[in-house]
Amino acid sequence: MAKLEINGNAVNVDAEPDTPLLYVLRDDLKMNGAKFGCGLGQCGACTVLVDGKAAFSCVVPVSVLEGRKITTIEGLGTIEKPGPVQRAFIEEQAAQCGYCTAGLVMRTEALLKATRQPSEAQIRDGLSPNLCRCGTYNRVIKAVQRAAQYMRTASAEAGSDKT
């Protein structure tokens, strides 16, 4: 039995401790966001956040996740109310088949959490653990820039609310 906190919800999953998080998300919890791409930590299709940092869920056994905060793309927003990064990807039409996209969205989320105003070089390096075969990288880079903008505006507004 693994006790996990996913997108702010406590969940108990009947899974062997060595089960990689990806299989728990997809198979036990029927969540779609994290994708199986290689199972080897090479492609990033399975990227989620663990305590706000990007992780390859295909090589993270659930046994190490007790007490950690897991965020998946389902936790960033909904189709009706997408979060800033999701919105930016939609607006830049930064997908073709879209299979890699959720992982890239999560990679972006982690990047912008760590660096509010990343340079283009930081974005390119930050995204590079994740592969896209369809050739969307340049649109994704634009989406990251747009998302950074949204996040800054959002926090500026939140800031001005306080004053």
Binding site: P17, D18, P20, L40, C58, V60, P61, S63
Partner: peptide, 14 residues
């Protein structure tokens, strides 16, 4: 022990 599960879930694939 805890290391065994980590190895099986994180390392054994490769």
């Amino acid at each position: 022990g805890p290391g065994a599960a980590i190895y099986a879930g994180a390392c054994a694939q490769c």
